[in-house]
């Protein structure tokens, strides 16, 4: 029997982002939001462990009931057995350090947990910093960026692909693990799962009950990233210059335009 915590974040669907043509800023109101891709994979890993040896899978998010309850219910429909909403209207502004302290306090108040499994990065901001920071604050074994996770006979096997190759780790709980969106194909809740989840309740905790000082960061602006384009023209007036021009084009292509 395992008790697993899965922190989940409500992310913008960046694929559906539209930008204001004058200011270049995203029009966020119209962008649908749902559970981050890697978070969903983290939940799937937790549910797989629960399915094989039993236990509890508890999700937690920071936000408002109005905007976040659908995501929590989505997690219930996938199979999470319980959930917490750390409620605050300013969830988009809380700095990373405070988020870390909130989750640490939540673990201390509602734990202990055998495992904390989270998405390696969120679909929208993707700094990938929260899992290692939380692992460090909790002082537990931490493996980040897992592409393949297995749990058998009380032992975790985690495969991570880093810049210099593939690493395989073996460790025993308690631990914090962060998984990438490559880790699995998350289950799709069936209609019966969704109707069952409708009757489930999550517990609301105010952010102030968990941390005293709330650090905030104001996002001043987000701009569309536009790949700079060069316009290069080679004039070819005779046939023998053709090979030279082609050579030039090739070298530019090799460098990357």
């Amino acid at each position: 029997m395992m008790k697993i915590l899965v922190p989940i974040k409500l992310c913008y669907d960046v694929g559906q982002m539209k930008f204001d043509s004058n200011t270049g800023e995203p029009i966020l109101d119209a962008v649908p939001r749902s559970m981050g891709e890697a978070d969903r994979c983290a939940l799937e890993e937790a549910l797989k462990i629960k399915d094989s040896i039993g236990g509890e899978v508890v999700v937690v998010t920071i936000g408002e009931a109005r905007t976040h309850s659908k995501m929590l219910r989505d997690a219930f429909a996938m199979g999470a057995t319980g959930g917490y909403l750390v409620s605050t209207g300013d969830y988009d502004k809380i700095d990373l350090n405070t988020v870390t302290m909130i989750f640490k306090a939540l673990v201390e108040a509602t734990g202990p947990y055998d495992l904390i499994i989270m998405g390696a990065g969120s679909t929208d901001t993707h700094s990938s910093l929260l899992p290692p920071m939380l692992g460090a604050k909790l002082g537990i074994k931490t493996v980040v960026g897992i592409d393949k996770l297995e749990y058998a006979d009380g032992e975790i096997t985690a495969v991570c692909t880093y810049g210099d190759g593939s690493y395989t780790y073996k460790l025993k709980p308690p631990a914090l693990l962060s998984v990438t969106s490559e880790a699995n194909l998350p289950r799709i809740p069936t209609i019966k799962d969704i109707l069952r989840a409708k009757k489930m309740k999550f517990e609301e905790l105010s952010v102030e009950s968990l941390v005293e000082n709330i650090g905030k960061v104001d996002v001043l602006g987000i701009e569309k990233y536009i790949v700079p384009r060069k316009k290069l023209i080679w004039e070819v007036d005779s046939e023998d210059k053709l090979a030279e021009a082609l050579e030039n084009i090739l070298s530019v292509l090799r460098e990357g335009v």
């Binding site: 309850s69 659908k70 219910r73 989505d74 429909a77 194909l185 809740p189 969704i194 989840a197």
Partner: peptide, 17 residues
């Protein structure tokens, strides 16, 4: 309703896959 929205997303994911 919330469950209708979750259901829509689930059918979208099923259909995409």
């Amino acid at each position: 309703t919330e469950d209708e929205e979750i259901f829509r997303e689930s059918v979208e994911e099923f259909s995409r896959r």
